[in-house]
Measured scan of single mutants.
Amino acid sequence: MIIKINGKYYKIKKIEKNPNGKYTITTENGKKYEFKNVKIFSEEELK
């Protein structure tokens, strides 16, 4: 799965839903981001 952050695309390693309704997304390079609204892309959609 792929996520778009600030115009760049990252591969997703893990998605966790937090009790506060936000999502914590861990990218393949180990960085964590927290979002309220998340749009996930499949690799097929990006081709």
Rank of each mutant, 00 (worst) to 15 (best):
M1H: 08
M1A: 07
M1Q: 07
I2N: 05
I2Y: 15
I2S: 09
I2E: 04
I3L: 08
I3V: 11
I3A: 08
I3M: 07
K4S: 09
K4Y: 15
I5P: 00
I5F: 05
I5H: 04
G7P: 00
G7V: 01
G7I: 02
G7M: 04
K8D: 04
K8E: 07
K8V: 12
K8W: 07
Y9T: 05
Y9G: 02
Y9D: 03
Y9I: 07
Y10C: 08
Y10T: 04
Y10I: 09
K11D: 02
K11T: 06
K11W: 07
I12N: 00
I12R: 00
I12H: 00
I12M: 02
K13E: 08
K13V: 15
K14D: 07
K14L: 12
K14Q: 13
K14N: 10
I15W: 06
E16K: 06
K17H: 08
N18Q: 12
N18G: 14
P19F: 06
P19E: 12
P19D: 11
P19M: 11
P19Q: 11
P19Y: 07
P19R: 11
P19V: 12
N20T: 06
N20E: 10
G21C: 03
G21E: 02
G21F: 02
K22F: 14
K22Q: 11
Y23W: 14
Y23C: 05
Y23G: 00
T24I: 14
T24S: 07
T24M: 09
I25E: 00
T26H: 07
T26R: 01
T26S: 02
T27W: 05
T27R: 01
E28D: 09
E28L: 15
N29K: 06
G30E: 03
G30W: 02
G30F: 01
G30C: 03
K31T: 11
K31I: 10
K31L: 12
K32G: 02
K32L: 08
K32T: 14
E34F: 11
F35W: 05
K36V: 14
K36E: 13
K36S: 13
K36T: 14
N37A: 09
V38P: 15
V38S: 04
V38E: 04
V38L: 13
K39Y: 11
I40E: 06
I40L: 10
F41R: 05
F41N: 03
F41K: 05
F41L: 11
S42N: 11
E43D: 10
E43S: 04
E43P: 08
E43M: 02
E44V: 06
E44N: 08
E44T: 07
E44D: 13
E45A: 09
E45Q: 11
E45K: 06
E45S: 12
E45I: 12
L46M: 11
L46P: 09
L46A: 09
L46E: 07
L46R: 06
L46G: 07
K47W: 02
